[in-house]
Write a protein that binds this DNA or RNA. Structure first.
Lengths: 142, 142
DNA sequence: ACTTGAACCTACAGTAGCTAGAGGATGTAA
DNA sequence: TTACATCCTCTAGCTACTGTAGGTTCAAGT
């Protein structure tokens, strides 16, 4: 039987995060000691590891919920899981494209800064003048 | 004199966002009509454009506050702005590295999925078994 | 002058995914 | 038994907005 702290250490999760997952129904309510402390088994350890690994791959909690459902139902066809993974991959690729553009712009800013005072600062100038910019209006969520 | 809606349209911002910026002190309190509606001048338009452009480049609001302070004080040396931009560039580069690893992992998952049912699903299997993974423990913030 | 309707106002709640703290109870080893 | 790490619940906070409810104001058209 594992305490919440052990579970936390083994999966690289904070204790509070595990309780949070329980609260939102991602982790099941575990058994308790007489004194009311949570005690976990190996199934819960696996489940939490699954969740953490998925989070590390950037899957949002909603998607993880779906993946867990699939994982719990071995007979269901797997294309749904495939779908979710593909969606995530697409998202990651979009973000990368976006970051590439940002990086270019930031590099340009930094490179052109000659180190005078603020009134001649290239960095500030570029930020002030949107027209010399490669970046589009509505791409804020990086 | 510009209404808040006009300012919003011109800068690609939502009206509520402008009010939010005012609330947190990033935008000044503008003049009002007798009826209490906000009216802006060109200075405010410029300031908002600066903020939005910076946000598009991924600068957090705190950094933008610093940049605005610098922008308001033309005599201060510019290396602080340079510093902030460099910091941001570094962050962007870190994120890109991270996303590259994620992309590789996701591609692998998707590629190996053969389309059976959930019990043989490669995607789920990879998520279950952290040990075959390239990704490190603590890299969740993508 | 009057009416209409878009745009404005405040205030509050909600989003994702945790994280931190207060104030107190429990479990375990010496 | 005593110390002390770990646990408990509850609440609030973080970033950067976004949405809604319920009401007011402005400007254009008649």
């Amino acid at each position: 039987m594992l305490t919440i702290g052990t579970l936390a250490k083994r999966t690289g999760t904070k204790v509070q995060t595990i309780r949070y997952y329980e609260q939102i129904g991602l982790m099941p309510e575990p058994g308790r000691t007489e004194g009311g402390q949570r005690r976990y088994g190996d199934a819960e350890l696996d489940r939490l590891a699954f969740i953490r690994h998925s989070r590390q791959l950037g899957f949002p909690l909603d998607a993880i919920r779906e993946l867990l459902d699939l994982s719990d139902a071995p007979d269901r066809p797997c294309h749904e899981a495939d779908e979710i993974a593909r969606r995530q991959l697409k998202l990651v690729e979009q973000r990368m494209e976006r970051l590439k553009a940002l990086r270019a712009e930031l590099k340009r800013m930094v490179k052109e800064c000659s180190g005078g005072n603020a009134s001649q600062c290239r960095v500030l100038e570029v930020l002030r003048d949107h027209s010399e910019c490669l970046t589009e209006h509505d791409q804020i969520g990086v």
